[in-house]
Design a protein around this nucleic acid. Structure first.
Lengths: 336, 336
DNA sequence: AACTTACCATGAATCGATTCAGCTTCGATT
DNA sequence: AATCGAAGCTGAATCGATTCATGGTAAGTT
């Protein structure tokens, strides 16, 4: 059915070995052969069979990326960065969405294992160390994204979430806020915990008195922010916090939407809001959102680069790359 | 290095054929063998080699999805729908971003061809008929997404963009708008053209006099909307349109942001805005955005289902599935 | 003329899962 | 006791690209 190398070889009047050489190391083949083979390929519409190639080679030119939340633009940006870097190495990035579902997470890991990907990028949700260890045993490189590797067994690329939480909190305190609420969850997500921890630290180190309450959400979507915002506004006005620190921008956007509806609260005059991630939609919100930026593209690019290095050199030692977060001040915290 | 079927067979004391049978049709194997093989697999940590499997089988359990704009949440939703359906069939969806780049688009098509994907979903940007025809010749099913197949050579799943444009326009007219601007581009994107065509038709069929001007944008991102909004506001106030119809929600969000900044224009009192796609962020905007909804998840699901059917039956006849768009009215067009 | 060197081309072996014709076993039937 | 069928298992052939030991050829050297 499909055109194979054998067909091309026959048409060009050479052996299959020569066809392979033309494709993979043309410099070692005479110009004449290259021309004839190239022409035969053209005429027959030959396309390499990746499966056969991989079977022989043992590894593929594909990298897997297991993502926590495909609906969050932050992760889309990270993926995008990885793709950019990958395409420079003629490598394809295959991605799978786990949607914070442990089962799907494991499913994708196994799938990528079967496909003998060159390496795996993963923004982990559940506890997958056992699965990752199996990959490692099979010689597949693993790089954690957006999560510091606690035991240092794997390389990781992340942002210092604790520092980020501190940045956000310090900003709120500096701009005069004293009754602050952290909105986020679930707390078994490492990122959420770290951001809260940073906020707590900043509150304690401040040389003024600051209260920091925690408003727990079920998830990290816009809807969760809306619900929390509504709940906060139901309090008597004197009990309102004067600032909200959302665990990510999606929640922050939900909060914003809730507060602004019908002018129930003025942002930032009555209540300031700051998010985390600095997704593109944060700047585009009608009250542009202050946020703690993670260098998402850069993180993706870096993760992929490290992954390829480790895939090339099995002896390499895992390293933790931590980027600093960056405070981005917009109208949602500072009135103009 | 890696554990192969042969190793498992040896450990379990059976032949490789039996191991394969245990994996693929356990009902035809004795319970005893199943148990022993299962145990051996467990003990050795065996993982199937997908390359070998595919080489033999000739097709893979993978479907490719070539996407126009990975930053647009609309496409993320479509992909998500396809993934949902795919996972019910134990099929993986591999996606590639073309970012409206013809070269990358072709690159990905060829890549998927090499990988012998079971089928290809594509939201096409440039003219790729030649490439798609090659896929078809190789027996790989193709379904166009978000684009009606003009010549009917391929199946397609799309929304009636003309009707959508009409819906949006009629809504604006009904709510009293008379000086309307269509904001979008580039016009070699079919979707943009169709939406404008629908708007034109509605303007002509209205029993009141309506003007429809066109404000061309370079792309379909938030930034393009901001630029256009700024430009419109620079006119003397009497020349302002009283409504904006954006070719998609990203542009609409950009417009909104531009108008609302510093209270330069009240939305919807001074200028109404309606977008297209109804992405999740449309509802979450501080002035919730009216939009024309495309059933994105459903489109993805349907496209994948058709793709699998066609992959299973090469004789099947291409069919065009067109969903109706749905008007979603929110605060950006109707003051409360 | 004999020999060396450089350059290329060849084609069989290989990767690992799947398939299927053929074999073995064992119980049922006559 | 002979025959048959069903159930289960075996192992060689197969898919197609890559690799590499082997061999051939032409040009250059002694």
């Amino acid at each position: 059915m499909a055109v194979s190398m054998r067909d091309v070889a026959h048409r060009a009047g050479v052996s299959v070995g020569t066809v392979s050489n033309v494709l993979n190391r043309p410099s070692e083949v005479s110009a004449d052969s290259v021309a004839r083979v190239t022409r035969a390929i053209e005429e027959l519409g030959y396309v390499r069979n990746d499966a056969a190639r991989r079977l022989r080679a043992g590894v593929s030119a594909t990298v897997g990326f297991v993502v926590l939340d495909g609906q969050n633009p932050f992760y889309n940006d990270v993926v995008r960065g990885a793709e950019d870097e990958a395409s420079r190495h003629s490598i394809a990035v295959l991605h799978g969405n786990t949607d914070q579902d442990v089962r799907r997470e494991r499913l994708y890991i196994d799938l990528f294992h079967e496909q003998q990907v060159r390496g795996l990028l993963i923004a982990p949700y559940g506890d997958v160390t056992a699965h990752l260890d199996r990959l490692a045993e099979a010689g597949i490189a693993v790089v954690l994204v957006d999560r510091f590797s606690g035991d240092g067994r794997y390389s990781s690329v992340s942002v210092d979430s604790v520092a980020g939480g501190r940045l956000a909190m310090e900003h709120l305190i500096e701009t005069g806020r004293r009754r602050i609420a952290f909105v986020g969850g679930p707390f078994d997500l490492r990122q959420v915990n770290d951001r809260l921890a940073g906020a707590r630290a900043a509150a304690e180190n401040a040389n003024v008195t600051v209260t920091l309450e925690v408003v727990a959400t079920e998830g990290m979507a816009v809807e969760d922010g809306v619900v929390s915002g509504d709940r906060i506004l139901m309090r008597t006005r004197g009990d309102w916090p004067d600032a909200l620190f959302a665990a990510n921008d999606l929640i922050a956007l939900g909060l914003l939407q809730s507060l602004v509806t019908d002018g129930r609260a003025r942002v930032p005059q009555d209540i300031a809001i700051i998010g985390f991630d600095d997704i593109p939609f944060a700047a585009a919100a009608a009250v542009p959102l202050s946020s703690v930026r993670q260098p998402s593209r850069m993180m993706g690019r870096t993760a992929l680069r490290i992954l390829l290095e480790e895939a090339a050199d099995p002896e390499s030692i895992p390293r933790q790359t931590v980027f600093p977060p960056e405070l981005v001040v917009r109208a949602s915290t500072v009135a103009r």
